[in-house]
Amino acid sequence: MEQTKPAARDKKSGAPHMVRKEYLGRVIVTICGLFIIVLTLAIGAFLVYKGIGTFTVYHHSVFEFLFSSDWNPSSSGSSGGGTVGAAIFIFGSLITCGLALLIATPFSLAAAIFITQISPKLGSTVIQPTIEIFAGIPSVVYGWVGLTILVPFIRDVFHARMGGYSVLAAAIVLAVMIAPTITTVSADAIRGVPGMYLEASYGLGSTRWQAIYKVMVPSALPGIVTGIVLGLSRAFGEALAVAMVIGKTRAFPSSLLSPTTNLTSAIASDMGNTADGSEHNMALWTMALLLLLISMLFIILIHFISGRKEASEK
């Protein structure tokens, strides 16, 4: 009560001043908010404008772009006449990200359960902060470590043909990169499960393990899936770390130990050497557009999942 009094007096005496401040704040916040929306839309529109050139200017079919592996776009002038089948790049992105999820999810989920249920004290004081530091390490560092440790390791241990540059190396690097995201989001989701669920399950005579995997994990599932999708979208957009270890061989991988390439590496390695408006350049923009569409899809997925969660809670 005593604390609110001075504030109330302030409001009375300095009303015009406060109003001005009130409006100023609102205007700034509104402008910033609108700016972000406009910026996002502008980038999206630009990517669409650039990306559809492959289909409108050079008359390739969407089917060819997505499902053909015949990649030989012309990079001279606006003559066109090449082929733009990006299937190898798309497949490379899918396989490395899929594998990364397969590797990271079990570890992350187990870690999330450990830091929330099994050892919450150690979890919140030591493990979670450590994991958050992991999430902040720049991807080039992961790529470099992968290149110096992982690639030679795979070469020497598995006798990989192409010097250790492989799908496996890319998947492991990505898994290490996305594990912190999945872990922290999952841990938050598990913490968000109401305590009474756990108590009720103990009351019914379940063991701690039964309570965890029959009650906690299923109720936290939407949050866990959100974490997985977030991790997946980070993995999909990652360029540098993957490019360093994947080998960038333009062929479908014949095994986990053979190199391949992906969307982001292709864009990064060819963008500077292709002139604006050439078929090659346009095809790269189409890849960029595809990446945008995929990440939009992931975001819609997250909204869908969390929407369902809210609906089920009501």
Binding site: Y165, T261, N273
Partner: peptide, 26 residues
């Protein structure tokens, strides 16, 4: 494939023959 070094090497060392991109580290 867009590299100038590669274009030059392809033209004068390989007499214009296309490199085997599907079997090479890039």
């Amino acid at each position: 494939s867009s590299s100038g070094t590669r274009a030059l090497f392809q033209e004068y060392a390989l007499d214009g023959e296309e490199e085997a991109s599907n079997a090479a580290l890039e």
